[in-house]
């Protein structure tokens, strides 16, 4: 199917299957995807002459993530998924009795965990990724307002930039949590590196933080399940402008449609 042109930034291979699976959609998402394809071919044929917007992005779409950023997310999600699934089979008696193979599970768990920071580190080569990290890092006044309205469950739209305060907190918490899991995991992996108090303490932290991370990841996936537009942005790199105006109004204003 026709693909939208990728912005050059990022560095990892453009053209690598980001369109995979877009044709199989049913329901409302499928309809939206159909228009993406149509718009893409329309803009592809018209872009040379009209240059309706930079990069040939049609006016009803916004470039949200580069190819590099989407692969950082995919690789991190895959590694996190492997770590969580192997952890469940190591930890929950019912699942452990089902598959056994403890040593193999331990090896897979250890390596998925150790490799988990790598996609993010590789992503630092991408300018767009670094810019988004900066956006995630900084809390403006509207982020605090967003947060207080979310906590108090005030109905109605909440103002946010490219990422809302919840996403910012999730990202920064996960960054710290992955590092803690990595450190405590290595202490358990190589028992002769540290005295026993540290090993027991690390096991304690690793166990409890794992439960916390599990709950957060389930919540993260739950939000994605309820938001097809957000999922599409991570799958294709483009977000619907109406969705952006509703969910990330300040970011949408940064990128006005051509001709306004």
């Amino acid at each position: 199917m026709t693909r939208l042109p990728d912005r050059a930034g990022g560095g990892t291979g453009t053209g690598a299957g980001s369109g995979a699976g877009t044709g199989s959609g049913t329901g409302p998402g499928g309809a939206v995807r159909g228009t993406v394809g149509a718009a893409a071919s329309a803009s592809a044929s018209a872009s040379a002459a009209a240059s309706s917007s930079e990069d040939g992005v049609p006016p009803d779409l916004l470039r949200r993530f580069t190819t590099a950023e989407r692969w950082v997310h995919r690789a991190s999600a895959a590694l996190m998924g492997v770590a969580i699934v192997t952890a469940a089979f190591l930890y929950l008696p019912a699942l452990a009795e089902l598959v056994g193979r403890r040593r193999l599970l331990v090896i897979v768990h250890e390596w998925s965990g150790v490799l988990l920071p790598l996609p993010l580190l590789a992503g630092l080569a991408s300018k767009a990724f670094r810019a988004d990290l900066d956006r995630l890092n900084r809390f403006a006044t509207y982020d605090w307002r967003w947060l207080s309205r979310a906590v108090r469950r005030v109905p109605g739209p909440r103002v946010s930039g490219k990422f809302n305060a919840g996403q910012k907190l999730y990202a920064s918490f996960m960054a710290g949590a992955v590092l803690v899991m990595l450190g405590t995991g290595i202490v358990m992996w190589f028992p002769y590196l540290t005295p026993l108090v540290w090993r027991t303490g690390s096991t304690f932290v690793h166990d409890w933080l794992a439960i916390f991370i599990g709950v957060l990841v389930i919540g993260h996936i739950g939000m994605a399940v309820r938001d097809p537009d957000a999922r599409r942005a991570l799958r294709t790199g483009f977000a619907d402008r109406r969705w952006a105006r509703r969910e990330h109004p300040l970011w949408e204003k940064e990128n006005p449609p051509p001709g306004e």
Binding site: A131, F139, K168, G201
Partner: peptide, 29 residues
């Protein structure tokens, strides 16, 4: 207000989690 301004709360959260993790490993026993 433009994105990317304001206090670096993200970094503080990350370092806070890291600090708590080290504290937990030290006292967890």
């Amino acid at each position: 207000a433009k994105d990317g301004r304001g206090a670096p709360v993200g970094r503080r959260v990350m370092l806070g989690v890291l600090g708590l993790g080290v504290l937990g490993a030290a006292t967890g026993s």
